[in-house]
């Protein structure tokens, strides 16, 4: 019973972490594209945007994976 509940909590935490990281990555990418489109000479290269999204995803996953389990635990209990 406990194992099932723990696994469910883990699943929720993973989904929440992925969702929040993807949200941040989307914001990053959209902002980058928006900045580029608002200028005559683009500021960010494609490599900048792609590498940036990867780096942002990694960092935000680390942060969100540390935050979400606690929040979900509290919600469930």
């Amino acid at each position: 019973m406990n194992e099932q509940s723990a696994s469910r909590r883990g699943k929720y935490a993973l989904i929440a972490s992925l969702a929040s990281s993807l949200l941040l990555v989307i914001i990053f990418a959209v902002l980058s594209v928006f900045v580029n489109s608002s200028r005559t000479v683009p500021l960010y290269s494609q490599v900048d945007i792609i590498a940036g999204t990867i780096f942002v995803f990694v960092l935000s996953m680390i942060v969100s994976a540390s935050i979400w389990p606690g929040i979900i635990e509290k919600r469930i209990s």
């Binding site: 900045v35 500021l43 942002v56 960092l59 680390i62 942060v63 540390s66 935050i67």
Partner: peptide, 20 residues
């Protein structure tokens, strides 16, 4: 560690979008 990652992320966003 968590705080540091948040700081690193904020610094990254700032220097990428504003500071650079």
């Amino acid at each position: 560690i968590l705080v540091v990652h948040v700081l690193a992320l904020i610094a990254f966003f700032f220097w990428y979008f504003v500071g650079f």
